[in-house]
């Protein structure tokens, strides 16, 4: 990845002559007009390539006894070589802490996805209506929608702020559907023929 930016359309390497020109230049490969805003990080060589062997008397990496420790994990305090130190902005973590934090969802910085219960609730209702299964299992689907909306309202954790509007819609539609179904069932049950 080092050494230059790449054309978004053809992925050709764009050399320093394309950087920070302030206007669009023509890509030599695909003739697209490309503007590159390059930052100093583009010229910094990769850290993993310069791992230093541990000399006697020096601290070694927790995971690689032969590598000299360069930094410490901000979470557990283990000594780490450049290979094991994974930076998240100004913070550095070891692979173990990243694995553990991602499993436990204990650090918002390491959360990579969230489940959208509001969309699931609406999708369940919409799918059942479009596939006409609502005509057969309408009460079950409506109650499932209500349950999903209530559970989601309590447990949905997105990293960015999200409106509760969809939960409201799912809850209202689910309750209306369940109400209609219960009303129809109460109306139909007495009308059913009795075999005494």
């Amino acid at each position: 990845m080092k050494g230059g930016a790449f054309c978004p359309l053809c992925n050709r390497l764009l050399g320093p002559e394309f950087w920070n020109s302030g206007h669009f230049l023509v890509c030599p490969a695909c003739s697209a007009q490309v503007m590159t805003t390059a930052f100093p990080a583009i010229t910094i060589p990769s850290g993993a390539s310069s791992i230093v062997a541990c000399e006697p008397g020096e601290s070694s990496c927790f995971f690689h006894a032969n590598n000299r420790a360069e930094t410490i994990c901000d979470r557990c305090g283990r000594f780490l070589c450049r290979l094991c130190s994974i930076s998240f902005g100004k913070r550095r973590f070891c692979p173990d802490c990243i694995y553990r934090s991602r499993r436990q969802k204990s650090d918002p910085l390491l959360i990579d996805q969230a489940v959208l219960f509001d969309n699931i609730a609406i999708a369940v209702l919409a799918l059942s209506v479009f596939t006409l299964t609502y005509l057969l299992l309408g009460l079950v689907v409506s109650l499932l929608t209500v349950c999903l909306a209530i559970l989601g309202w309590r447990y949905q954790r997105t990293l960015v702020r999200r409106s509760r509007f969809r939960f409201g819609i799912a809850l209202i539609l689910g309750l209306i559907g369940a109400g209609i179904w219960i009303f129809l069932l109460l109306l139909l049950i007495p009308a059913l023929p009795r075999y005494a």
Binding site: M1, A5, F6, C7, P8, L9, L14, W19, F24, C27, A32, Q33, V34, M35, T36, T37, A38, F39, A41, I42, S87, F88, G89, K90, L109, I111, D112, Q113, A114, V115, L116, N119, I120, A123, T158, L159, V160
Partner: peptide, 28 residues
């Protein structure tokens, strides 16, 4: 933070300012 919504999931990608090498735009 780039948040991409995939119907029932929201995926997150982070780009730390200290790590960003380039932003490239091509006319389409």
């Amino acid at each position: 933070l780039l948040a991409t919504q995939m119907i029932i999931f929201e995926k997150y990608h982070r780009f730390f300012f200290s790590d960003i090498e380039a932003i490239i735009a091509a006319k389409s």
